[in-house]
Nucleic acid binder design. Sequence first.
DNA 1: TTTCTGACACTAG
DNA 2: CCTAGTGCCAGAA
Length: 104
Amino acid sequence: MPGPAGGGDLEPLADRVLACVQLIPAGRVMSYGDVAEFVGSRAPRQVGRILALAGGTVPWYRVLRSDGSCAEHLHSEQVASLVAEGVPFRGERVDMAAARWDGR
DNA sequence: TTTCTGACACTAG
DNA sequence: CCTAGTGCCAGAA
């Protein structure tokens, strides 16, 4: 194999991130860092960047910060969509302890 | 090649 | 509970 082959870069990081987000079941959520690690990358910021470019093609609202909060521009749609799917909330933030999805 | 930016994560106070 | 500072990686100019 051509290299350490730590995580297969067969496809652009963007495609793998979008695929991971689409795999998230309704009622569950994942943090940017979790998605990044799930795809084999350590750049949670890139995940947000990718969703910003093609977020309209995937349930981006199922992805938020590791503390359960979200960005200002998303706060309104983010919360509305999650509540509609039955995601457990704790005040203004999501209960990651119960809604966090680890890929199984 | 270097430099800047970004829908973040983490630790400390 | 909150804010502030630092480190991380990937892509574009």
